[in-house]
Amino acid sequence: SADYSSLTVVQLKDLLTKRNLSVGGLKNELVQRLIKDDEESKGE
């Protein structure tokens, strides 16, 4: 998976916004949300 932890919070929020995901929470939560979304989209 992508190394989201190396991105800035601003970059993470931009990715979340593009996916229509919540941008609330700490950086670690944003990273986990993106990883979870990646895993769910692979399952389709």
Score class of each variant (00 low, 15 high):
39 E>M: 14
26 L>Q: 12
30 L>D: 01
13 K>Y: 03
15 L>D: 04
1 S>H: 14
19 R>I: 04
24 G>C: 15
41 S>M: 13
17 T>V: 11
28 N>V: 10
25 G>N: 02
32 Q>D: 12
29 E>S: 05
5 S>Q: 14
6 S>F: 07
9 V>G: 04
34 L>E: 01
27 K>L: 08
33 R>I: 04
5 S>W: 11
2 A>L: 14
36 K>C: 08
33 R>K: 05
33 R>S: 03
42 K>H: 12
22 S>P: 15
13 K>R: 12
33 R>V: 03
30 L>A: 01
26 L>P: 12
43 G>D: 12
4 Y>R: 01
21 L>F: 00
33 R>N: 02
15 L>I: 10
4 Y>V: 02
43 G>E: 11
31 V>N: 01
33 R>H: 02
17 T>E: 12
43 G>I: 13
10 V>S: 15
41 S>C: 10
43 G>S: 12
39 E>G: 08
34 L>C: 02
20 N>Q: 09
23 V>P: 09
23 V>L: 09
27 K>C: 06
16 L>P: 01
29 E>A: 07
22 S>R: 08
9 V>Q: 06
41 S>A: 11
26 L>C: 12
41 S>K: 15
13 K>M: 10
24 G>L: 11
37 D>A: 11
35 I>H: 07
20 N>G: 15
10 V>I: 12
37 D>W: 13
4 Y>I: 03
40 E>N: 13
18 K>Y: 04
20 N>P: 00
44 E>Y: 11
22 S>F: 06
4 Y>N: 02
32 Q>S: 10
5 S>L: 12
33 R>G: 02
16 L>M: 04
8 T>Q: 06
9 V>E: 12
39 E>L: 14
44 E>H: 14
16 L>A: 05
30 L>I: 04
2 A>N: 14
33 R>E: 02
26 L>F: 08
5 S>Y: 11
8 T>A: 06
35 I>Y: 06
38 D>A: 05
5 S>R: 08
44 E>K: 15
32 Q>W: 04
33 R>Q: 03
21 L>K: 06
11 Q>V: 07
24 G>W: 05
39 E>T: 09
24 G>F: 06
44 E>P: 13
34 L>S: 00
14 D>C: 13
1 S>I: 13
14 D>Y: 07
34 L>V: 02
16 L>S: 01
27 K>P: 08
44 E>G: 13
38 D>R: 03
22 S>T: 08
38 D>M: 06
9 V>K: 07
43 G>W: 11
29 E>C: 08
7 L>H: 05
25 G>S: 02
22 S>Q: 09
42 K>C: 12
36 K>I: 09
22 S>K: 10
8 T>C: 07
35 I>G: 03
4 Y>S: 01
4 Y>A: 02
38 D>H: 04
44 E>M: 13
35 I>L: 12
33 R>Y: 01
3 D>G: 07
26 L>H: 13
33 R>C: 03
11 Q>P: 00
27 K>A: 06
39 E>P: 03
27 K>T: 06
23 V>S: 10
17 T>D: 08
7 L>V: 02
24 G>D: 15
2 A>M: 15
10 V>R: 10
28 N>P: 11
18 K>T: 08
39 E>A: 11
16 L>K: 00
37 D>I: 03
15 L>N: 03
22 S>I: 07
12 L>A: 00
15 L>H: 04
10 V>P: 14
20 N>S: 08
15 L>Q: 06
6 S>D: 14
13 K>S: 05
42 K>M: 12
27 K>Y: 08
26 L>T: 15
31 V>T: 05
28 N>W: 14
40 E>G: 09
36 K>E: 11
34 L>W: 00
21 L>Y: 00
43 G>T: 13
14 D>R: 08
24 G>V: 15
44 E>F: 12
36 K>H: 10
18 K>W: 03
6 S>V: 07
16 L>H: 01
35 I>R: 08
10 V>G: 13
27 K>G: 04
16 L>F: 00
31 V>F: 01
22 S>M: 07
18 K>P: 00
15 L>F: 05
37 D>P: 02
2 A>I: 15
37 D>M: 05
21 L>S: 01
3 D>H: 08
17 T>S: 14
11 Q>G: 05
24 G>A: 15
10 V>N: 14
41 S>R: 15
14 D>K: 09
35 I>N: 06
1 S>R: 13
21 L>D: 02
15 L>M: 09
40 E>Q: 13
14 D>F: 06
25 G>C: 04
9 V>T: 09
23 V>D: 09
34 L>G: 01
43 G>K: 14
10 V>K: 14
4 Y>G: 02
42 K>V: 10
15 L>R: 04
2 A>D: 12
9 V>M: 09
16 L>G: 01
